[in-house]
């Protein structure tokens, strides 16, 4: 089934003679190639790979550390800014409260003043009105009294047919009216 002169493997002559032990013995060309290749990889790993990766990892570590420190600093700064803002806010609130309170007080005092002045004015007006009214009443009363006395005298003169002592009669009538007024009031 396997013709010997076939391309089963290109190296037929040598392969036919190969024994199992040949598999265990290194081929010299492969050994030399392997040694060269391995040595090159080893020197590359030794002289380049590890120094390079160490440098990379160190710089990365430094960068990460710096990043964390910056973040920490930013956090602290933000914290202090926040505190500042809160303090300012509290101050502003206090200020506002104070202003409102002052305004309220000012309003209060203005109101009180206005009310007081209005009271005063009202009282003055009332007083003046009262004074006017009482003056008028006195005037009316006096006029009325004169009128009544005159009329009474006229009536009395007509009754007695002679003129009476006008002045003393007048005083009499007045006294009578006063007594009436005293009773009435």
């Amino acid at each position: 089934m396997f013709a010997s002169a076939t391309p089963w493997l290109l190296a037929t002559e040598a392969a036919e003679e190969s024994e199992g032990i040949d598999l265990l013995l290194p081929e010299s060309s492969e050994l030399i190639a392997g040694i060269i290749a391995f040595a090159i990889i080893f020197f590359f790993a030794w002289k380049w790979v590890f120094p390079t990766i160490t440098k990379t990892l160190e710089s990365r570590q430094a960068a990460i550390k710096a990043g964390f420190e910056a973040a920490e600093a930013a956090k602290v700064e933000a914290e202090s800014l926040k505190n500042d803002y809160q303090a300012q806010l509290a101050q502003a609130r206090e200020e506002a409260g104070r202003i409102v309170e002052e305004a309220r007080q000012a309003g209060e005092s203005v109101r009180a003043e206005v009310v007081a002045r209005a009271d005063v004015e009202a009282a003055a007006i009332k007083e003046r009105a009262t004074a006017d009214m009482s003056g008028e009443r006195d005037r009316v009363a006096a006029s009325l009294r004169r009128e009544v006395a005159d009329l009474s005298l006229d009536v009395a003169e007509k009754v007695v047919g002679s003129s009476l002592d006008r002045a003393s009669q007048q005083a009499l009538v007045d006294r009578y009216i006063d007594e009436l007024g005293g009773l009435g009031s």
Binding site: M1, F2, A3, T6, P7, W8, L9, L10, A11, T12, E13, A14, A15, E16, S18, E19, G20, D22, L23
Partner: peptide, 26 residues
């Protein structure tokens, strides 16, 4: 390439007479 040399009508697996051949590139 050995396909032509493997007697597929008789065998049930194709193997070279000497499997060591698989490891030598002479």
């Amino acid at each position: 390439l050995a396909a032509s040399e493997c007697d597929v009508s008789e065998e049930i697996i194709c193997a070279p007479k000497d499997v060591l051949e698989l490891f030598f590139f002479e």
